[in-house]
Design a binder for these strands. Sequence first.
DNA 1: ATTAGATTTATTGTACACAACTAGACTGTA
DNA 2: TACAGTCTAGTTGTGTACAATAAATCTAAT
Lengths: 238, 238
Amino acid sequence: MTKRTSDTGKTIAERLEAAANAQERFQIMYGEIRDRICMLVYPPGSQLGEEALADEFGVSRSPLRKALQVLEADGLLRSQQGVGTLVTEVDIEELTQVYQLRMELNELTGKLSPCLPTRELKALFSEMRKRAQDLRNTPTRADFARLNIDFFHAFQQLSENQPLRDVSEKLFYQTCRIWLKLIPNMDLAKEVDIFCGEIDDIVDAVELGDFQAAAFTRRAHLSMGFIRLKAQKDTASH
Amino acid sequence: MTKRTSDTGKTIAERLEAAANAQERFQIMYGEIRDRICMLVYPPGSQLGEEALADEFGVSRSPLRKALQVLEADGLLRSQQGVGTLVTEVDIEELTQVYQLRMELNELTGKLSPCLPTRELKALFSEMRKRAQDLRNTPTRADFARLNIDFFHAFQQLSENQPLRDVSEKLFYQTCRIWLKLIPNMDLAKEVDIFCGEIDDIVDAVELGDFQAAAFTRRAHLSMGFIRLKAQKDTASH
DNA sequence: ATTAGATTTATTGTACACAACTAGACTGTA
DNA sequence: TACAGTCTAGTTGTGTACAATAAATCTAAT
């Protein structure tokens, strides 16, 4: 069975074949593996296997390893000679500091070089609202996680500060797996409701052109979400 | 001529030989190349040459490339097939956003999980003050840059928030070259004086155990330093 | 002299073979 | 059985040859 990406209908190998240069090929491999990790296709603790992946992607281990090495620098993988390439664990305690930092950075998204409220930007966010409504009707774990990722990327576009974007993205991908991991122990429909409420609030702010309000709203939800996650973990351990 | 590191007296090849595993070897190569880039041993725009570097380090291109790839992800290098591995340029205009972000993050260093004011920490900072005095007596470009780097690392130890440290470090290494690049057009003795004054202020705050004051002081100096850099650039272009 | 095209040369990208290493299975002994 | 040592299978790390690419140089025609 060859896996296909949802948007293009092409296999990874085909997309890599079509890429113009090494940098594009790297981006495809890096993005695909990162996506699989944070969608728990590769759950924490699982082993990747360079040769198998290289075969699937239709390349040799050399270019694949470049993607793996950067993912290791990102903290999503850990390679050890003789052992393997393992997906790192996610633990809410260890992510506390990351969450603290993310909250502060979200506040900065509203402060540092906010974008102009263009038509495209508003259209992007109203599409998010639509997807949130669809998710509310038929909530699933995977769609929840996917919307979470896509909404993050939409939100990132509110600031023109590229270094801030880059940093926020790295931190996001360090934390986003925790939801998919813990949601089985939580009330999915309720969490989806809360998340959709957040999206509603933020899209309202974006449509008014008040990006700072959007940033504060997101910061508040991030904080509350983390508290719910932690409460879940505490009850589960008793 | 074999280059030797100042602290150990060993060549890079010898240090790599002595390393226990691949991760240590990677750290040695990564740190050494990054240091050379930000000390302008490899000035912006210069070409590295994988084979020559691999020869000097006594390894093959494969492990060396891992270090280069991460440095490329850090934004310090850019590799292109058929062209070479080039050190990226530093431009004050492009670094404006990075500086803005660094200022905000510095404020967070005082806010997010500050460390306890241990004896070791205070000793480290009083050593910094001593080095600053030495530099004031005999100011040189290279010593100025070195103290700037080492003082940054000392300052990083004021917060226990590891993600914040990691992020701050990446951003620091994106910006620190601008000083060495522009200082020839400025008054070195004056800049050294100002920097030593900053160190004095911050060490005072650290010795009192007031890390938040230290962070605000640093933020203020960072801001003023950037303004001086920019003013220099503006006068130079007229 | 200029310019378009071919050629050369130098560099990174890729593939592959093998070395180094680890964890677990196996085996012999007390 | 318990345990220590050895062996084996499987993995990542390293070295090396070659392919792909791009910039500079040369060449020839206009």
